[in-house]
Write a protein that binds this DNA or RNA. Structure first.
Lengths: 106, 106
DNA sequence: TTCTATGATCGGTGATTTACGATAGAAGAT
DNA sequence: ATCTTCTATCGTAAATCACCGATCATAGAA
């Protein structure tokens, strides 16, 4: 994973509302449906939520599922995991002693 | 770690130049000195680098060490690890099956 | 077909970010 | 004391972001 990709994803995660949206999406059991639901759970306009969703989409952190007249979104857990992976190896690489300060992986 | 803190750190890491700066700082063996060195390693003006450094400072990702006429910076590995920790538990929390997609920790 | 609901997108506003050159202050050297 | 070096900060311009209301396209219902 290139630096640019890491930065893009980090950036997408770098807003509390977007962290919240991920959580809201994940909470919907069966992954079924979301979107107006998300707006309903937040003190923001629909257009604003839609924009935040787009940022998450562009970062590949969620996926769109057209469901008739509405769009549902599901969290891309593998992508989140991939970031964790890339991040951990970056942190490990930064550590001069090579000791794994904490997270072991990859 | 609160969402706001996670978002702040993520955001600080959400720029390729800043990832680079972390790497440059980490590469200086003995953690000794940096700053003009950083500017030298990047195609950016000194003032711009200084601003990026400030973002990293504010996020607690690096620490300033006054060294006479110059300032040196060192990476705060524990802070990086703390984010990894917070991130991993967040991702785990997002996963409906509770299975740990990958990174095990905390 | 016409109506309704959903949600993406457009246009706009104000705040923030990224970049720069210029400046200023502090520490060390002369 | 003066000069030099280093670097934070200021001022500025351009780009991007976060938010909003309004609009438009689409799918389903009437």
């Amino acid at each position: 994973m290139r630096d640019d990709d890491i930065a893009t994803i980090m950036r997408a995660l770098g807003h509390p509302v977007r962290l919240n949206i991920l959580r809201i999406l994940a909470t919907q059991q069966r992954g079924e449906c979301c979107c107006a639901d998300v707006t309903e759970s937040l003190p923001l306009a629909q257009s604003t939520v839609s924009q935040h969703i787009k940022v998450l989409l562009d970062a590949g952190l969620i996926k769109r599922l057209p469901r008739g007249t509405r769009n549902c979104y599901i969290v891309q857990h593998d992508r989140l995991a991939a970031l964790g992976s890339a991040y951990s190896s970056m942190v490990t690489g930064l550590n001069p002693d090579g000791r794994n300060v904490e997270t072991e992986l990859v």
